[in-house]
Each structure stands twice: as C-alpha cells, then as structure tokens.
Amino acid sequence: MDELDGNGAAGLLQEIFGTDMTIAVATCASCGSAAQIGESVLYAGGPGTVIRCRRCEGVLVVITQVRGRHCVDLMGIRALDMPVGSA
C-alpha cells in the first residue's frame, strides 16, 4: 500500500474539527519537529486512520469511527498551530 499524506484525510478532519486541518502545523510529541498535517504521513483504509510524523514516524493522530461516532486521539501532537479566522 502506498503511504499517502495528510491531504487524504482532509475531509475527515474537516468533518470532525469543523475547519481545514491540512494547513495546521503540528509539533510532534515524539521528536519535536513541526510540519503541516497535509504534509504528514497518512495510513488509511485499515481499521482506522493514522497520521504520523514524517521525520520520526511517531503517531500524531489516530481516528476510528465506532457506531457513528469519531474516536480521535491527538496525544501524539504536542502543539497545534492554526491560522486565525476562516478563509
């Protein structure tokens, strides 16, 4: 399976967070590197969606969908920078 990038989770993330998350800059809790989620590594198609740090492969985000609810884990992100206001 090809690894995708965070762009592939754009719809899911916007549905959950109510705003475009691909441009959000995530600081990896494992290695401290900061990158836009659109550029991070995406594993999807399996039981859930996993977004990982492109530098250290540490897990940034895990999302599963259970009985109509999204279960979201952001503990792999130490800090999240979002632009103020919507486009």
Binding site: G11, E15, D20, T22, I37, E39, A87
Partner: peptide
C-alpha cells in the same frame, strides 16, 4: 464531502 484541502 468537500471541498477540502487548503494545503495543496
């Protein structure tokens, strides 16, 4: 569902 993707 869209449009999405502000990065690209």
């Amino acid at each position: 569902r869209g449009p999405v993707g502000g990065y690209f």
